[in-house]
């Protein structure tokens, strides 16, 4: 099962007649493949069986930061990313989804965060398009993007949209949305007037939305109308 080549022995003598070799600690890297994929999930499931609160804490310790880091790629705002992740955990816990899911908790949490992030971008974009009269419909399973690659395509495009901004505007955009800084702070840091920062932000948001809308409107429309 385990590959001995990956073993890393840490041995230390302990004066103990019952174990002549002393304690032995053996470690295999977590990323070694399917065995550990199964094991890490098993540990969390066992924790949930014993005590839900502990299971939840374990999920936060292991996945929270990674989930936030993933969500922020779509929404480019820490606050919104953390809101999305918080909502996913809240639903997972309050509706006791952990009792029902058949895929791994990890797959469930990442998938939920991706769908919610996707929905968020879609809703944001709708605000800035001429399709405002189109009613926002309740999201149904069959209206979701059907392929994995659409998620990656979307956040790569978000990144590209930000990269397309002029240097100064991009810096302001990242400071405000990503680092969560206030306009005042940014103005002080960059020796700009408050008014200039505001204008740059307005332009930046508009530009990013326009970039995404041009590339994604068809996809989002398809999602809405199917």
């Amino acid at each position: 099962m385990k590959k001995s080549a990956h073993f890393n022995h840490i041995t230390k003598k302990e004066p103990d007649e019952h174990s002549p070799e002393g304690p032995v600690f053996v470690r295999t890297p977590l990323t070694a493949g399917k065995l550990t994929e199964y094991e890490s999930e098993l540990i969390i499931r066992k924790a949930f069986e014993a005590d839900t609160a502990n299971g939840i804490e374990l999920l936060f310790r292991w996945y929270y930061a990674a989930l936030c880091s993933h969500a922020v790629r779509y929404v480019s705002s820490r606050e919104i990313a953390e809101d999305i992740v918080s909502d996913v955990f809240y639903q997972f816990h309050s509706e006791e989804i952990f009792r029902k899911v058949e895929i791994s908790y990890r797959a469930y949490l990442f998938t939920s965060v991706r769908y919610r992030a996707f929905d968020y971008v879609r809703a944001e974009m709708k605000r800035s398009t001429s399709l405002q009269q189109a009613e926002y419909m309740a999201i149904r399973e069959d209206q979701q993007p059907d392929s994995l690659t659409q998620f990656e395509d979307l956040y790569h495009d978000v990144l590209r949209a930000i990269h397309e901004l002029p240097v100064k505007r991009r810096e302001i955009y990242i400071k405000h949305r990503f680092e969560g800084k206030k306009y005042q702070e940014i103005a002080r840091e960059m020796s700009l007037s408050l008014r200039t920062v505001e204008t740059h932000m307005y332009q930046a948001i508009h530009q990013v939305r326009k970039f995404l809308t041009d590339r994604w409107l068809v996809v989002f429309l398809a999602c809405l109308l199917i």
């Binding site: 103990d16 304690p23 600690f25 295999t28 094991e39 540990i43």
Partner: peptide, 8 residues
Amino acid sequence: ATLTISGA
């Protein structure tokens, strides 16, 4: 997760 221990 994969750490194992032997000893008394």
